[in-house]
Design a protein around this nucleic acid. Structure first.
Lengths: 157, 157
DNA sequence: ACGGTTCCGACAACCACGTTGACGAGTTTA
DNA sequence: TAAACTCGTCAACGTGGTTGTCGGAACCGT
C-alpha cells in the first residue's frame, strides 16, 4: 500500500518527454543545416511528410495536417519559396494544383530518415537496445491512437 | 553482429515522445477547462511557471523563457487579460513593473500539478510503476541538461 | 443536358506569438 | 556628474494559424 520512496512529481513526465523530443529535433536540424538544409524548420518536416512521394493538393495537405486549406496553402508557398516543393497543374482536374516534392524536398526527407536512425543508434549506445525498445513500447502502449501527431502545427498556441 | 529483428525506424522515437507529451498536455488542458480554466493555453503554463510565487519583471520572464522582453511583455498582456497575472509598480525600482500571479494564476498552477500527478498515476496503472520509472530514468539519462525546455515558445516555427 | 451542390485555390481581414530597432525614463557605475 | 546600462513600451514586420468570400471547375440527380 505504502510507497517505498515517493514517486517523482507528475509534471516531470511531460517535461522529460518534451525534452527528449526536442533534443532529437534540435539535433536533426543542426545536422540538416550542415548537410545543406539550413532553412527547413521543424514544422516543415510534417508538411513535407504530408505531401508524400506522389504529391497531393493543398487542401488534402491541410486535411492531413489538421489545418485549414488556407493555412496549408501558405505553408506550400513558403516551401515552394525554399525550393522544397513545386506546384503543377493537375491534368485530370483543372481546379487542383498538384503539390510535388522537388529533388531537394526528397533529399531533405531522405536525409532526415538517415539522421533519425543515427540519433536512435546514439540512444542505443547510451541506454542499450533493450531500454530504448522499452521506452518505445511503453509509449506505444500509453499513447492513444488518435493522439498521433498528425495535426501538429499551431497546436501549441 | 546481426540484428535479430530489425529495429524500428528512427523517426518513430520522436513521434512517440511527442505523442506522449502531447496526450498528457491535451488531457491536462481538457481537465483544466472543466475546472474553470478553459482559456489557458499550453504556452501560458510555461510563462506562469517562469513567474514563480514571488513575481518578477517582464524582462526576467523573457530571459527565463529564452525570448525577447517584448515578447514576454505581450504574453504578460494576454495573461493579465485572462486574469492570471497582475502588474504592480516595484517600489524599489521605478523602471520595473512587478508581474505577480493572481489567486487565479496560483490556482491554475496548483490544479495543474494535481492533474499531472493524476495523469502519471494513470500511466502507472497501465504500465506499472517500474516501467514508468524506467521511462523517466532513461529520458533523464539521454536528455542533455541544456535541452530542458525552458525556452519553449516559438521554438517550432 | 442542365442546374444545384460540392470542392479547389485564392484573396482579405484578423489574431497569436515571435522578432528588431528605437525611445524616454530611471538606476548604476566610473 | 556624466556615461552606461536596464526597464518597459511603441512600431514595424515575419510566420503560422483562423474565418469568410468568391470564381471557376467538377460532380450528380433530375
Amino acid at each position: 500500500m505504502a510507497e517505498v520512496s515517493s514517486p517523482p512529481p507528475g509534471f516531470e513526465l511531460p517535461l522529460l518527454l518534451f525534452a527528449g523530443f526536442r533534443s532529437l529535433i534540435d539535433e536533426l536540424h543542426a545536422e540538416l543545416a550542415e548537410r545543406g538544409h539550413p532553412d527547413v524548420r521543424p514544422v516543415h518536416g510534417f508538411a513535407l511528410q504530408a505531401i508524400g512521394p506522389y504529391g497531393t493538393s493543398a487542401s488534402e495537405i491541410g486535411r492531413r495536417l489538421g489545418v485549414s486549406k488556407q493555412a496549408a496553402g501558405k505553408t506550400v508557398d513558403r516551401l515552394a519559396g525554399l525550393g522544397y516543393v513545386e506546384r503543377a497543374d493537375d491534368p485530370a482536374d483543372a481546379r487542383r494544383k498538384l503539390i510535388r516534392l522537388t529533388p531537394r524536398g526528397i533529399d531533405v526527407l531522405t536525409q532526415s530518415a538517415e539522421i533519425f536512425d543515427h540519433l536512435r543508434a546514439r540512444w542505443v549506445a547510451t541506454l542499450g537496445a533493450e531500454r530504448v525498445a522499452e521506452v518505445e513500447s511503453s509509449l506505444r502502449t500509453v499513447v492513444p491512437e488518435t493522439a498521433f501527431p498528425v495535426d501538429v502545427p499551431g497546436w501549441f498556441g
